[in-house]
Design a protein around this nucleic acid. Structure first.
Length: 390
DNA sequence: TCTGGGGTCCTAGGACCC
DNA sequence: TCTGGGGTCCTAGGACCC
């Protein structure tokens, strides 16, 4: 029997935040543009290709970007705008496949295996690319490969507006000569260690024989990385991954370091407000509360507490935030504060309200049980919290 | 060039339960 | 009684990605 290869697309929006701004305002297209970097302590999240010609890149410190390109226009991050274009992007992709996995706000995987009988995959990719550019002014790069890892690597090979096919038989020529730090999943902490043991390219990893040595660098993921480098990745495109947030948080680096306890509390209140507003807007309740403190010397602590009930109540959450901070005070000046929540689930009380209006719909047994459990948890939880205050 | 803000996933130890 | 083995949850930290 003939083996059927999968056909996976990875589609990546080029310089996404900058592209959104340029789509909204044509006058920005020809000038160097950077996004982010509100203060001199900030960095750019991305830059358009005009700015990149000057050597400006994402992650770059604002001062350095201005030095390289004095005429650069810096715009603040406008997340709502990017969400809007992300929605447009995924809506268009959904015309081409039912099997789509959101990789992040600006990239997605499509399983195109069942769509490719009549038309060549490259022709479909060209159509998607042209439509996104013509209809919405969004440039994308597309990788086409038999699995997700290779598709991801392929979309990265030609930017902007590239289409790259990466077949198994192309690996020796196209993938293995790449430097090891270009491999997806190998970051700035790992690649220097790989170089120390003589691995400079992805091909070097494929051919490396001393797996014991490799384990010292990659831990339990030796096999996974070698398999991927060899072109094997059995993950399936999963539309249900990342449909719900696993954590919601916000953090801020302050223009100057904070020394005052009262100032810290003020900042924690406003961070908590922001997070709780998002939790409520998401119609969720949460159980675990986390704070992040980064000191002026860049050391960082994270402290978390899991409640025995779910809540979306500001006062309940803030009380924990303040307690976590109080329990871990230090004399060091503070550079950044963050608040986040995890252990998130849909707010069943809201769910019930919706059902009251929808009288035609009969409440199932499972729904009744869920509501019951939820009510018990809330009551029980409130008692605990009151005990805690006294 | 002193280093953002949004996330996910993994590991490892300890508590606790059966 | 001197001691197990599996499973789950919590907490802290770290690596990575966009």
């Amino acid at each position: 029997m003939e083996k059927k290869y999968r056909i996976i697309f990875h589609i990546d929006l080029n310089a996404f935040f900058a592209s959104c701004e340029m789509a909204e305002d044509e006058s920005l297209i020809k000038i160097p543009l950077g996004i982010g970097g509100s203060s001199n302590r900030g960095v750019l999240t991305t830059a358009n290709y005009v700015a990149r010609k000057y050597g400006v890149s994402s992650g770059m410190n604002v001062v350095e970007a201005k030095r390289l390109c004095p005429s650069i226009l810096l715009l603040p991050v406008n997340f709502a705008l990017y969400q809007k274009y992300s929605q447009i992007f995924f809506n268009l992709l959904s015309e081409y496949s039912d099997i789509i996995e959101k990789g992040s706000i600006d990239e997605g995987y499509l399983d195109m295996t069942d769509m490719s009988e009549e038309v060549h995959p490259v022709e479909i990719a060209e159509e998607i690319q042209k439509r996104l550019l013509n209809e919405f002014k969004l440039p994308v790069s597309i990788g086409i490969a038999p699995n997700m890892f290779l598709a991801k690597m392929a979309s990265d090979m030609k930017k902007p507006l590239g289409i790259t096919v990466l077949r198994k038989r192309d690996l020796a020529e196209k993938l293995w000569p790449l430097p090891i730090e270009d491999m997806y999943g190998i970051g700035k902490k790992t690649y220097p260690n790989l170089k120390l043991i003589g691995i400079n390219t992805i091909g070097d990893l494929v051919n490396y024989e001393d797996h014991k040595k490799l384990k010292l660098v990659l831990g339990n993921r030796v096999k996974e990385f070698i398999e991927k480098a060899k072109g094997t990745d059995n993950r399936t495109v999963d539309p249900h991954r990342y449909v719900e947030y696993k954590s919601i948080g916000t953090s801020q680096t302050y223009a100057t370091d904070i020394y005052e306890y009262q100032t810290v509390l003020t900042k924690l209140v406003s961070l908590t407000k922001k997070v709780v507003n998002r939790v409520i807007k998401d119609e969720s309740v949460v159980k675990t509360i986390n704070i992040q403190v980064r000191y002026s010397d860049f050391t960082q602590i994270n402290r978390s507490k899991t409640l025995d009930f779910y809540t979306d109540n500001f006062f309940e959450i803030y009380q924990i935030v303040e307690q976590l901070y109080d329990d871990n005070q230090s004399d060091l000046p503070i550079r950044l504060l963050g608040v986040s929540v995890s252990n998130i689930k849909p707010n069943v009380n809201n769910f019930r309200q919706i059902n009251i209006f929808d009288v035609s719909k009969e409440v199932t047994k499972e729904e009744k049980v869920i509501k019951m459990l939820n009510n018990i948890n809330v009551t029980y939880g409130n008692k605990i919290i009151k005990k805690g205050i006294k």
